[in-house]
Amino acid sequence: AAPSPTPAPVPSSIIQLADGELKRVEDLKTEDFIQSAEISSELKIDSSTVERIDSGQSPNAVVIQFSVGELKAQVCVEVLVEYPFFVFGQGWSSCCPDRTTQLFELSCAKLCVGDVCVSLTLRGLR
């Protein structure tokens, strides 16, 4: 599966956590996702490990292969290089942090093979 690139989060947005607390997107911590998922009746937290990063169809795109969840399902996504993911214990990370910072004013780390990203799945989906 290779979905088309999706838009990145609007960095100046305010996010309301499951407990009602308001935070800016750039201030979110790993614990915020974990705690919100614990409260949530619909979503649970999962992890996706970056296995490979290849260049994509266009010069500013990359194809990232993830190993998802306990079943280690292989999922590929093609995204723009500035697209940020949220890495456990590290925060927002992209393949081109400079571009992400420039475009979205979202400070970012470099996304690397082996990074474990936060993902959220619907409870009871499987």
């Binding site: 609007v10 499951a18 979503l43 999962d46 996706s48 993830f66 998802v68 999922v75 993911f85 799945t121």
Partner: peptide, 19 residues
């Protein structure tokens, strides 16, 4: 400034097995 519920970030996170 708009306020979004936290789950609106789901599409922006890493893929899941259902993707």
């Amino acid at each position: 400034v708009p306020v979004f519920p936290w789950h609106s970030l789901v599409p922006f996170l890493a893929p899941t097995q259902s993707d």
